[in-house]
């Protein structure tokens, strides 16, 4: 399946802003996060197609996964 991964804030350092990836069916968010060299603790927000998702969320073909560190504003 094909997914799109988008990284934000410090996660972009030494990585990328946006990348298309080919993945096996049944891949969850955690697997992708760990393969990016990120730890679970570093993750602030996981969005799949603009909706909050958990580390165990199974990705589907065509999904967009957006990852943010713990940041905020107001």
């Amino acid at each position: 399946m094909h997914i799109k991964v988008k990284l934000f804030a410090t996660f972009r350092n030494g990585r990328f802003k946006e990348a298309g990836q080919e993945r096996q069916e049944g891949t969850n968010c955690r697997k992708i996060i760990l393969e990016l060299g990120l730890t679970e603790e570093e993750i602030g927000i996981i969005l799949v197609n603009g909706r909050h998702a958990s580390l165990d969320h199974l990705l589907q073909d065509g999904d967009t996964l957006s990852l943010f560190p713990l940041v905020g504003g107001g």
Binding site: G50, H52, F68
Partner: peptide, 18 residues
Amino acid sequence: EGLPTYGTNVLVNILNEA
């Protein structure tokens, strides 16, 4: 860390994605 680095404007991309 987040606020001193990016300021409050880090929210543009977060709210856009959401």
